[in-house]
Design a protein around this nucleic acid. Sequence first.
DNA 1: AGGACGACTGCAATCGAGTGCACTCTGCAT
DNA 2: ATGCAGAGTGCACTCGATTGCAGTCGTCCT
Lengths: 340, 340
Amino acid sequence: MPQLKVTLRDVAAHAGVHPATASRALSEATRHQVNVETARRVVAAAHELGYEPDLTARTLRTGRTATAAVLIPDLTNPLFPPIVRGIEDTLAERDFTALIANTDNDTERERRVLRAMRARNVDGFILLTAHRNDETLAALIRDQIPVVTVNRTASGPDISSVSADDNAGIAAIVDHLVAQGHSRIAAVVGPRTLSTGRARYKAITAGLRKHGLQLPPERTAFARAFSEEEGRRCMTELLAGTDATAVVAANDTLAVGCLDALRDHGLTCPKDMSVTGFNDILFMDKLTPPLTTVRIPHTQMGVESARILLDQMLGRSAATTHAVLPIELIVRESTAAPTR
Amino acid sequence: MPQLKVTLRDVAAHAGVHPATASRALSEATRHQVNVETARRVVAAAHELGYEPDLTARTLRTGRTATAAVLIPDLTNPLFPPIVRGIEDTLAERDFTALIANTDNDTERERRVLRAMRARNVDGFILLTAHRNDETLAALIRDQIPVVTVNRTASGPDISSVSADDNAGIAAIVDHLVAQGHSRIAAVVGPRTLSTGRARYKAITAGLRKHGLQLPPERTAFARAFSEEEGRRCMTELLAGTDATAVVAANDTLAVGCLDALRDHGLTCPKDMSVTGFNDILFMDKLTPPLTTVRIPHTQMGVESARILLDQMLGRSAATTHAVLPIELIVRESTAAPTR
DNA sequence: AGGACGACTGCAATCGAGTGCACTCTGCAT
DNA sequence: ATGCAGAGTGCACTCGATTGCAGTCGTCCT
């Protein structure tokens, strides 16, 4: 019957050596300090007793927890699970664990979470929550704690980040619509306090300009959040005052809201209005009509961010990295040539 | 400028007392052992210095981590995020944190995860992964570690569990179909190694029997996983050999696969075949046609399970609880009266 | 022969908080 | 005056693993 809790002393006693020797024998990095035969005995003893080092004790001594905090706005937003999955799997390869917390984009909640994570001595942070001028982020930088931002990027260039190529994505969307014959193109813009909202807004105007087109105010609606309700509201607003034949929504969730609004008004997509999204989250291929959107490599973004963070946490590289991952235009049935 | 790491000794020094006294003054449970005035001074000092106790050190001494492990098959399955969210929020109310890990229903991976979690001294486990005769589960029970199973239940009655009322849900589905005039009803059954697959299978036959109907082999398809591909395969199989007018899928993901298969065969739902799901995961209202399904209280299931686990971890109650939460039939457009 | 060096191993301190035990001191009763 | 209760505080050890330092022993060189 195995002991309830096997400690290093047990292993040492079983192998007939001092705990210090046992410790050295069991760690890859210090094993060379120990006689091969002794090391073999210790390892055998550890195996036999089913020894598993107590990470708490190790942490207290070394200051490392082999844990990274992952801060996301809301896990129930389908954009995030694949990213988190990529992060967790990658961290696990190095025996690191992720501590996940939801912030709901709420500053107060973010502060609470940050404190809780720091009390737990996490070795690094992956932020999917960064807003411009982020207090949390600033605090981490100040204290020299490894950080990587994902999806949203923050102001400073001195923070590692991973993102999808928003510019290329929006450009692809605009090119596609123009190629189909659209010239009066409207936009449902995301919150400009978030880098994604801002960047994609700029990208749309830039993309249109390339084709000699403009984005006048009456064809622009500003969403206060990346939510279906806001998408619906914005589309309704646009329907009232514009003659646009296509709408570029800043993300899929907003696009779903746009489709809702069209249905509310008895209009059909794409006949009366083409609609596009961004991200290609789950089930976008099952909508009516299936949504034309931009696919970003969700899982890969998680993987990349975890890799960069691991490099920093393990001291392998202190270099600031900005990974911009390639996107893919996914043309489905929510876009078609204009009928007006 | 605040010190990088404020320790208990700093607080004690600042208040002019011994660390032991400071410790007692700061803990609710031992504060009465300390002079009120002294305690006030210590608390003031702690506040002033921004003291935050080091949870690692506390854990080493007390054996408690204020952490619970949450084992799920796969975070990217939309069934789980709302449950996890409920768990996290509820744990946070008591300053507990969740450690989430994906197992992919893989026994080997499950073992690895279990070891990692135990090395981290988690105080309890919430399993959304339990299969019948679960090795992981057995190990936890043996070592008297608090466990709650969610969604899937395990064999033993001595383990707390939270689940939705599968029987009532399936019964509601069957009643609904029969009321619409269906009598030849087929089923896409989930994996029988999982309690949900098994329970719903039994519930379907029971539900049909209540109406004097049967579920013959040619109207039964067995899915090897709760996946869209398997749903598609099973539906295809059924289409080949039966005259059923409705299909009850064991969950939404399978139902989505069924819809795929119908489309593949040029059939329309619900005209040619009614289809039902289970769980009412995200976007089931956006499918073509919107899916008739059973809504389970996802978030609430997470909340309940966390509550039960907290009770056990805090030693407030050792009683085994079996919570069965009420469901709701959601009738949409994937079901209609049979045309044959 | 004497010294130097290197390979191993053990000792003891450390990380930060919590807690049993012992001590001091005051106030009150005998 | 002596004793005693009890409040308040400090001392020292504990949790388990890691690591700087010092010691032991054998070997090799001059």
